[in-house]
């Protein structure tokens, strides 16, 4: 397992408030990692920094075998490097069909002219079918994404992530608002994905994290408080302090 992404000494502040404070983080490939932490711990900002939405005030974000610096690259460039992100609120293109949503995410050249002259291919169609199968949406392919249930939208978004074929998946609260059965399926999809790539899951739900059965990083006030197995961190007195808010 080689290091895929490494953050070191990263800090960012908004109007004096330090959202991320001297953060260090590493993940290898393939690996599944869960990130937990109370509200305001900096989980979302952490993802914003990796995906290029927020520029850190200092620190380094290194990516891949060649240790490319991701800071200063645009969101779309980082996405093309192989980092996919799923948002807390499901964001799919509700006006378009499930197939169109998946087709847009498929790993293909992204330039305007390449897209303009893009021709539908059999492989593309087969890949969409396979993905739909994986996320349980085969029946819904021709439906508008806006007509899907909340859980289905979450899956569709995960499916779009997988369609991008990223090396690193950043998943923000995938199980929020799901029925137990849907959770089960979601866990399956993520665990399957983590077999060939790095997956970072941000989650509040301890039960869900436990089921992922992976290394856990606890964030607090913008830096890493503890790291290790779920049992290890939940017994850490500092973590207990933070969560119980003493």
């Amino acid at each position: 397992m080689s290091t895929l992404l490494e953050l070191s000494g990263v800090s960012v502040s908004f109007d004096g408030f330090k959202a991320i404070n001297n953060l260090a983080f590493q993940i290898g490939e393939p690996e599944m990692r869960a990130i937990i932490g109370p509200n305001g711990a900096g989980k979302t900002t952490f993802m914003d920094i990796i995906t290029g939405k927020t520029k850190p005030d200092e620190g380094r974000v290194l990516w891949g075998e060649k240790s490319i610096n991701l800071i200063g690259k645009s969101e779309s460039m980082i996405a093309r490097e192989g980092i996919g992100r799923k948002f807390q609120k499901p964001t799919v293109f509700e006006d378009q069909t499930v197939r169109e949503n998946l087709a847009m995410a498929l790993k293909n050249p992204r330039g305007p002219f390449e897209v303009l002259f893009y021709r539908k291919s059999a492989e593309g169609a087969a890949r969409i079918e396979a993905l739909a199968e994986e996320i349980n949406l085969t029946e819904q392919l021709t439906r508008k994404a806006g007509e899907l249930s909340h859980g289905q939208k979450q899956w569709l978004e995960i499916g779009m992530l997988l369609a991008q074929d990223p090396r690193l998946l950043l998943v923000d609260e995938p199980a929020a608002g799901m029925t137990p059965a849907e959770r089960e399926k979601t866990t399956e999809i993520l665990v399957e994905a983590a077999k060939s790539r790095a997956v970072v899951v941000v989650e509040h739900d301890m039960e869900f994290v436990r089921r992922l059965n992976c290394k856990v990083t606890v964030l607090h006030e913008g830096s890493v408080l503890a790291e290790g197995s779920i049992d290890h961190v939940t017994q850490d007195p500092e973590v207990i302090d933070v969560y119980l808010g003493r």
């Binding site: 995906t51 939405k53 645009s74 969101e75 779309s76 006006d95 847009m104 992204r110 897209v115 893009y118």
Partner: peptide, 24 residues
């Protein structure tokens, strides 16, 4: 086709399209 898909997606959620790797 796909171009129209991307263009409409930009209208609806520009940031999301960016994270899909398109240079909006």
């Amino acid at each position: 086709g796909k171009m129209g898909s991307v263009i409409r997606a930009i209208r609806d959620d520009e940031a999301r399209v960016r994270f899909l790797g398109y240079h909006v």
